[in-house]
Design a protein around this nucleic acid. Structure first.
Lengths: 369, 369
DNA sequence: AATCGTAATGCACACGTGTTCAAACGGCAC
DNA sequence: GTGCCGTTTGAACACGTGTGCATTACGATT
């Protein structure tokens, strides 16, 4: 009907319906101020002409865009992808659209994309696994946009955040190894000084302390959070005179790298060495053996971040830090240690031991509705 | 400096600089029409006040948003994630921002998000692995927005598309198995009637034909494109009286499901059965054994789709269908068949055989710049 | 019958930017 | 001095929508 080129405007519809553009605007927004009959007529005409009201013009008039920006390190990271999926799901349920931008762990790039979001007048921003901590303080001052950080790697008191309980989760994971009877438990950390690494390391130490297992610094090595670094770190552990019987890893990718190194040495998981990861990536289910790991409720964390953001946008105050609990998923990469040289510690239930068990279940899972 | 609340506008800057808002607009856009000195002064004042020009208002004035929409089945799909990464990379290099929307393989949802993109006046749309074929014909008529389909699952003559050469790629993959000496080669397909499945199946048949291997219908079964379906399909193959020595799979996930089933039967890959996948997901590298597969240049396909879209937006005409070639990645899931009952076909080089080798390399890889 | 209240509609302005056109200014050639 | 041209600037309008305010119409109330 239209000769195309330019999309039809509200005034075109008004002309056809013989009313003012104000009435059309009201009719399409279901305003009670307009006569039901004419409203129906207008909506019919709009539909016939394939009219869609311009969100751009509406945004200019209302100074709200119903749009949020999501900045991630890399959308190709499976962890990130699930988080974004959760964000998007919650966003679309509230008629928000999401801008996505990779920053490839480059702080300069991160700054740039945040500015591009500012230009686009997004109503809010979610940043996953940001390493720029102090930056957001002054940035936030300048542009008045609500920001939610998800698993941010530097403590920030400027923005709201959603984060996993690293300490509790890793303590629970290491405790599983303890209860299986392991005494020589190693930790393969990350080498970039992330707070998630230090928190998981603290959980590891805490679990050892509770089991009266002395901490041995030579059982702690560092990877790079990826498979390659995990392999190299595991090599160092295996080269030591007395190797560990279990290894707790910073994340699944280092565990998978470690798995490869263990196999290269002709050893078996879990027979010779038990392995525990962190994240529960989809991948963890498909390696051999399937990986015991701590599940981060990635999708729910994304939804949660969006929910917090929506509150901030609405002006409702939300709690500063939303913590979610991990859940230990026991698969086949963990088992009791082989009876070996030192048999002092058998797998028999340690009846008289400390009864200080820790609550570590799926309770308080992040399924807020 | 500003009392905040509302972001500063071009007029605020104009007032401070004692010029008209037109001059500010020109100065910020580096127009040659403005005196270099005053331009410098204006830019300084703008920077001091943290001013950022509103992309919303600019879009309204110019009727261009520098924005594209990407609709995907699920961003949590690793294939999709890498494609999106490529799209985003190329987009940001041209100062475009990207809207992301999941449709969860629900055609109704797909329609809805495309309409939301229309409302937002995106300059273009990329759709990955769409199943809605004919729909886009009429839809495209209504809204005058350039669309590029990536690996679309129904042939469409309405929109431009980027797609993998399924036939050639799968023929090459099966040919590898033939050359290794396999004769009983099965195919685990997909059951949803995608064109990618039928094309890969055609490639499989073609490779058999060229090797004078008779086609056996009972060696073709169907999964669901995921691990579960792959396992079930493989179970059916293994239950047959005479099982295959090699299996070509519709994609990596079905191959991985198949791997699991093979292992459950106490058989080994590649000793008892060779396995070939399709896609080269990151996962393929980490299963045991690492999977031989056809690599789709996912990132480059994303970039390519964006490049085509940019051409269409600019009004330059682009070729209707851009085809990219897969690349066979040989890892450890393939090997010559074990010498067994029928020893008629040894692995000795078949000297006198058809010399009709096919060209199947990384040539014409999609690295257009 | 006059007044009032209510429903329905249109007018006019605002949102922030881009762009055309006219105007002001200064320098130069005649 | 006058006319012309180039440079720089401002005024005005446009983009498409939302909304406060005034206006009209009409039925109900006094």
């Amino acid at each position: 009907m239209r000769n195309a080129n330019k999309p039809a405007s509200i005034k075109d519809i008004a002309r056809i319906a013989r009313v003012s553009h104000s009435t059309v605007s009201r009719a399409l927004r279901e305003s009670p101020l307009v006569n039901p009959e004419t409203a129906e007529k207008i909506r019919r005409i709009a539909a016939e002409n394939g009219f869609r009201t311009s969100a751009i013009a509406r945004s200019l008039a209302t100074s709200r865009t119903s749009t949020i920006g999501v900045v991630v390190t890399s959308i190709a990271d499976p962890f990130v992808a699930e988080v974004v999926s959760g964000i998007e799901s919650e966003a679309i349920a509230h008629n928000y659209s999401v801008f996505l931008a990779n920053c490839n762990a480059d702080p300069g790039r991160e700054l740039k994309v945040v500015h591009s979001f500012e230009d686009r007048r997004v109503d809010g921003i979610v940043v996953t696994a940001s390493r720029v901590g102090a930056l957001y303080g002054s940035l936030l001052e300048q542009m008045q946009i609500p920001i939610v950080l998800l698993n941010n790697q530097h403590p920030s008191h400027f923005a709201h955040s959603v984060l996993i309980e690293n300490f509790e989760a890793s303590r629970g994971a290491v405790n599983l190894l303890v209860e299986l009877g392991h005494r020589r438990i190693a930790y393969i950390g990350d080498r970039f000084g992330y707070s998630s690494d230090s928190e998981r390391f603290s959980g590891y130490r805490s679990a050892l302390d509770e089991a009266d297992i002395p901490f041995q610094p030579d059982l702690v090595v560092h990877g790079d959070g990826k498979a390659e670094g995990g392999s190299e770190a595991m090599e160092r552990l295996l080269a030591a005179p007395e190797r560990p019987t279990a290894v707790f890893c910073y994340n699944d990718m280092t565990a998978i790298g470690g798995l490869k190194a263990i196999r290269a040495h002709g050893l078996k998981v879990p027979d010779d060495i038990s392995l525990v990861g962190f994240d529960d990536l989809p991948l963890a289910l498909y390696v051999d053996p399937p990986l015991t790991t701590v599940r981060q409720p990635k999708f729910d964390m994304g939804r949660l971040a969006m929910q917090v953001l929506l509150k901030l946008i609405a002006g409702v105050d939300a709690e500063q830090d939303v913590k979610v609990t991990g859940k230990l998923i026991v698969r086949q990469s963990t088992a009791p240690p082989k009876e070996k040289t030192e048999c002092n510690y058998s797998y028999a239930p340690k009846t008289g031991r400390k009864r200080k068990r820790m609550a570590f279940s799926s309770s308080r899972s992040a399924t807020a509705n």
